[in-house]
Design a binder for these strands. Structure first.
Lengths: 257, 257
DNA sequence: ACCTGAACACCGTTCAAGT
DNA sequence: ACCTGAACACCGTTCAAGT
């Protein structure tokens, strides 16, 4: 995704490392990024349970001690992958929100980005869930937990914004007794559930029998129709919007990774 | 849940054990059930990553060899927990479907049961997802994989049935181009996503700010309204239905566990 | 000021020896 | 016909010794 994403190499954390020259600091950040790429690959290949710090060490050019300078436990590393995932998501969401269309179409663009992220980075996507697990949280460094929370809040605020915009321009009217919060949660649950099931349970027959290309769009349309977010799906060809999002935002970029 | 659930002790698997007396067979099944309860507890306490076969051995009265007669790897044990979870779900779903009400209310009852299961057995609930992971599937015994698939199919058919009933009695009309499959998947994704986020990311602010009691109901209502499943939520007080489900199906039973 | 890798305690899995 | 637990290869984490 780097082509529309400012390079957010983590200058934080560094549990032990102190004041050093900017150059040295950059070298350390680069090494951390390199280790995270490798870890993501190994987790993807063998699953969380089979991923070991030993394998990470043997596949990298650094020693165990150095790796433990970056991550103070295996769980802390999962936490770091979660942070990386949230940063990527946020970048993609910002980019998606530049889509030209009505407020419901902008929301679709963001959810398209979410799906794209989940499918292209299944390991990172699942890390976000793992990282919320008590076992992982207990062993993560406080710095990383704080960073995680900060990013989660940013994502939430961003989503709140999509709904506020729709309310402001009149395309969405809150029914009495329904809070904006609960609508944001509904979309989140729906798109998270759709992505999680498709990414990790794709082999299940009731999932593989679906048309992958539109499963997410269908689900979202049903939900947004239920909320009464105009224009409703029978008044607008959102399949065409879905294709336009793909074309305008996520293809034909020069330096795609 | 045992009070409305036939005791489905697993007579299958038994990788190694051959023809034995019925009594002996029962003893072995009992031991397996005992080991699963213990494993579920340990996983719940320390997370998947920190759960070890050593701890299982030390906390049980059996030797490592005996435990490896039941489960041919740590992953196979996760697979067994997934099976247990699906069996419990199916029992609860059957029970829920006896709820007296219109087709949409019956569907609500089933989803109520799903939430109840997820909240009361968070570890089992998450095991179903873990078990679909390649790393776990690769190391599970073929017997357990087959059993898993069989149960998943039963659950899917059961859900298909809820929708077919609604179509038959006219409360749900399929729009052209929309398949029953995709509606079933939408409900599943929504309720799975809602449960997974609430069970495992309850600490996230955008979730904890919700009214837990009704988050699931709100989400489902939005979705079913979007599908046009009558009566719509502004024509029927589904909060009252939700409370009736709780009262009539899931409380005041004599031997509740 | 950081990096290294030997060392230690622990874990998954097997299998020869028992009953 | 099963159960046991010692044994082995491997893993997470630390820290004294190096540069």
């Amino acid at each position: 995704m780097s082509f529309f994403c400012k390079n957010q190499s983590t200058k934080e954390s560094k549990c032990i490392i102190r004041r050093v020259s900017a150059k040295r600091q950059q070298a350390i950040a680069d090494r951390e990024a390199e280790l995270l790429v490798l870890a993501e690959q190994l987790v993807g290949e063998e699953g969380f349970a089979n991923f070991t710090m030993d394998k990470l060490t043997n596949n990298s050019s650094y020693s165990k001690g150095t790796i433990y300078n970056h991550f103070n436990s295996k769980e802390d590393l999962i936490s770091a992958l979660c942070i990386k995932s949230l940063q990527k998501e946020l970048c993609l969401f910002m980019h998606a929100a530049t889509f030209e269309g009505n407020s419901r179409e902008k929301c679709l663009a963001v959810l398209y980005a979410y799906q794209k992220h989940a499918f292209e980075n299944p390991t990172l996507f699942m890390c976000v869930l793992s990282a919320k697990t008590p076992a992982v949280m207990e062993k993560s460094s406080p710095e990383r937990l704080e960073k995680q929370e900060e990013l989660t809040k940013e994502v939430t605020q961003f989503c709140d914004g999509l709904f506020s915009d729709a309310i402001e321009d009149g395309s969405l009217v809150l029914r009495t007794g329904v809070e904006l919060n609960s609508l944001v949660f509904a979309i989140w649950a729906m798109s998270f559930g759709t992505n999680a099931l498709m990414v990790s349970a794709g082999a299940v027959e009731s999932i593989s029998r679906l048309d992958n290309r539109f499963a997410q769009l269908n689900n979202i349309n049903l939900l947004l129709d239920g909320m009464g977010w105009h224009p409703l799906s029978d008044q607008c060809d959102y399949r065409q919007t879905w294709a336009r999002i793909e074309n305008q935002l996520f293809t034909n970029n020069p330096a795609t990774l």
